[in-house]
Design a protein around this nucleic acid. Structure first.
Lengths: 248, 248
DNA sequence: CGGTTCATTGATTCGCGTCAATGCAGGTGG
DNA sequence: CCACCTGCATTGACGCGAATCAATGAACCG
């Protein structure tokens, strides 16, 4: 998951600085739908940017000037209520697209969980490109459809699942994501804090922690350290995540 | 429980049966992006179908053969857990598009709340048309983006809002929807049961009912009958929905 | 080393769920 | 026309799962 260091680029065409050939997430990102010529066009409007953990990329309501592919690192998207209650609507990992839903203003805040590198496009120019490259628009529609599916799963989780079921679902999703990026599917690295997990699952840190302990006691997972989880009993964990178990 | 279309149109071009000129939701539906010639093309692949209240249009996991515009009536989309817990992910009203996210199988069940009329297209042929009509694809992307925005709002609601706040949010959304269709924005008709509202808001019917009573007591709404709500104090209701109020 | 942040665990509270009863239409058949 | 359902909304009594409040421990760091 390591990426070679980059010079700080700003607005210059990033031809030399951003060789797509070296991009480790090209097959996952929206770029995967493009042929060589189209990729060349996209490349000319792309720049890179890097953020440290905790950095705020944008606030809810900010004007959207750019959209991005995540090249490395992890981001969190969240919404806030006036009194500070927070709901994290998603985590973005390498290959994910940042910028949906596309509107004049972003409906959520974005913050870096780990050191994160983005491949950025001007939103305006991307829209222009979409007009000329149907495959790009199609790909974006596919991504939006995927996101919509995840969002609906998350609604079921937040509206109807117990704390235990929520955590089980989260861990399985994380494992699936990790697998897409060369992970084993058994061992999961969780770069985000318990508070982040709680705000994603609609719980508190205490409840998340207790649920971890509970899953561990039941031999469904192992917890070598707080940010590393090993799935010890996948069928059991899946059954809980799916809501197939009566009691705990 | 399952009801078939009343007007059994199958494959015939529905020129006579579905005169778009008479369509009252054309300006709201995906059709709004099309010029006359394009509308003509879409019309040739459209048929209509009608469903009685309670009719199941499709089950979660069914193969997708068609997508639709809602012409009249109300639909609910929902997901189920094995033990019967249900999460309604959305209600569709006239002008809404049924079929997102577009995949090989629908990730939710669809049921008619009231008598409902659909303008239906073969999914396969719509995808073909999308290839030829960029505006159609663009419009669908817009719709998907809109849906994504709503989904994220709903995640905040389900994960972090109190029962009272959830109901206030729901009523304001319903009022906004009604206004798009010529309603006053003050009086809301709720065709769905308390159980449906509960399953949409991640609550129980009892809690929904108690929250109604509470809002009524606080003079924020009036409730002439269970399916009719009048907003009596919009600023107050908005403040609650936004989570700006300390206590109840 | 003190200071800070974060995860875990325990004790207690509370909002909402569960269980139960009542009321109120609307439909049906005698 | 009325007796009797049946389904839905409302209300009350009570219990539980997760939140809140609080303390401890572990890792990191200047």
């Amino acid at each position: 998951m390591t990426v070679q260091p980059l010079a700080p680029n700003r607005k210059k065409p990033a031809f030399a600085e951003m060789p797509c050939d070296d991009c480790t997430v090209r097959e996952l990102a929206i770029c995967s739908s493009l042929d060589h010529g189209e990729l060349e066009q996209l490349r000319t409007i792309a720049t890179t940017a890097e953020f440290e953990p905790g950095a705020t990329l944008q606030q809810e309501g900010d004007a959207v000037e750019s959209v991005s592919n995540v090249m490395s690192g992890t981001l969190k998207l969240y919404k806030l209520l006036p009194d500070g209650r927070r709901q994290i609507t998603g985590f973005l990992v390498p290959g994910d697209f940042l910028g949906l839903p596309m509107g004049p203003a972003v409906p959520y805040a974005v913050e870096a969980v780990t050191k994160t590198k983005l491949c950025r496009f001007s939103r305006r120019r991307l829209v222009e490109l979409m007009g000329r490259i149907p495959a790009l628009e199609r790909r974006l529609l596919d991504v939006a459809n995927e996101e919509l599916g995840h969002a609906q799963d998350q609604m079921l989780l937040l509206g109807r699942k117990t704390a235990r079921e929520r955590l089980a679902s989260f861990l399985l999703d994380a494992a699936a994501k990790a697998k897409r990026h060369g992970g084993s599917g058994e061992v999961i690295d969780l770069p985000m804090s318990r508070a982040d997990i709680a705000d994603f699952l609609g719980l508190t840190t205490e409840t998340v922690s207790r649920s971890f302990t509970q899953l561990k006691k039941d031999k469904l997972i192992e917890l070598p350290d707080p940010s590393t989880v090993r799935i010890a009993n996948r069928p059991g964990l899946s059954a809980i995540a799916a809501g197939e178990i009566e009691a705990g």
